[in-house]
Design a protein around this nucleic acid. Structure first.
Lengths: 228, 228
DNA sequence: CGTTCAGTTGAGTTGCTTCAACCCGTGTGG
DNA sequence: CCACACGGGTTGAAGCAACTCAACTGAACG
């Protein structure tokens, strides 16, 4: 799988662009005839309510692409923001389509990633609608750990996420205060350890999975392309 | 748009299948090498928690297709259920791929529908995460009304949905009791009228849109393919 | 006429939010 | 080099929105 991603970068002769943490690459309802390919760092796709509340609907990790398009094929349906200093490539839709035409294997991989993203959203929707703060956060940690493991960005259950508690709250639909409390509780229970700016270590995946109400194997098949 | 849908049915020589209300066409984690095309009635895609809680992640309306596949390309990531007596066609993936290959216009329409579905999910995620019961329900009503209008299944803001309050709760992440209260309140405010088994009339779309915290034009462009 | 099932309403509970105070590490200007 | 402001995390207290539980209604059905 990874091979194919490296492949994308080779195929594209466009220049990469370094963006600073906090940069907003695209606002909701902006014209959006582009796709972003992330080489380094994380992006967040989020949606805003008129009163300023923000919901992160997905994270875009290295080697993934982000397509913010609406059903009108013109405007963006989400805001795209760099969560940390990042390196991205903008690809306009025409070039992207050409790329897919020329590389059926790329097309296939991208389709799988899209399916995976859709499955993830469904899982989150389920937990946002029907479960407690503990379950939501446990799920978020497991999902992130799994995705990071797939790109070899974890080591024995330890990983780094470029998120503050506010962002984790925007992702899980909770206030930052309650994220804090819940994280502390998990610490005390010995499930995880957290360090500044979110260095996370998962000590007991199974207990965490139970809290998150997931079956690890099933989830993996559902949200990680090529998990076999 | 509609033309293309009629077209699908003509292209497919498979037999349609009548399914009774409540039929579960597919369970989560079942093998799912099929896609469903709905001719009549509604399906629900939902996800379940071990404790039996259910979250409806999307409705499949007539002329739409449903692809329950996971990232492993084998199993289903959702449960698919008929919300009322319905007529569906099962299409195996191979046949579907052939169909798409042979009909680029169909491929394009399906891509748009998929984008639209993704946008809808993001909108719901936003409201599940960050807003009140009133807002969630107002949004659900507006979304359904818009989608039904696109297939000419509304008349002056009046439409029917084959849902009980329990299902509406499973869709909006609320208990049926609270759905009831909220619906009554909207009734009293003169925004809507409801009749048995969910015949809904929207009296004041603008007030409802305000409650739902949506901009009607923007939402339409986002979630209705071909809205122009 | 009794049973069932969806919707309605009231009462009491609870989980999460908001507000506010405080801590601490970092950056900055006198 | 210290003083101070600032931002993020942590904790306590109080409030409220939505939940659960439970009772009742009315329609549909045998």
């Amino acid at each position: 799988m990874l091979q194919t991603n490296f492949c994308i970068e080779q195929l594209i002769d466009r220049e990469k662009r370094a963006v600073a943490k906090g940069t907003i690459l695209k606002c909701e309802t902006d014209d959006a005839p582009v796709r972003y390919l992330v080489s380094e760092g994380w992006l967040a796709e989020s949606k805003l309510l008129p009163d300023g509340e923000q919901q992160i609907v997905d994270f875009i990790l290295p080697c993934e692409t982000c397509d913010p398009i609406s059903a009108d094929e013109k405007t963006s349906s989400v805001q795209v923001e760099a969560l940390c200093d990042a390196v991205v490539t903008e690809i306009d839709v025409a070039a992207w389509d050409r790329l897919l035409q020329d590389h059926p294997d790329l097309q296939r991989v991208e389709r799988l990633k899209q399916v995976a993203a859709h499955s993830r959203q469904s899982e989150r929707l389920l937990r946002l609608g029907k479960s407690s703060a503990e379950t939501r956060i446990a799920y978020a940690l497991i999902e992130l750990c799994m995705r990071l493991t797939a790109i070899h960005a974890t080591k024995d259950g330890a990983f780094h996420v470029p998120l503050g508690q506010k962002q984790l709250g925007d992702f899980t639909g909770l206030s930052s205060v309650h994220v804090c409390r819940t994280l502390r509780r998990m610490n005390r229970m010995g499930l995880i350890t957290t360090h500044e700016q979110m260095d996370i270590v998962i000590h007991d995946v199974f207990a965490l999975a139970e809290l998150a109400k997931v079956d690890l194997g099933t989830l993996r098949r559902e949200i990680i392309p090529g998990a076999a």
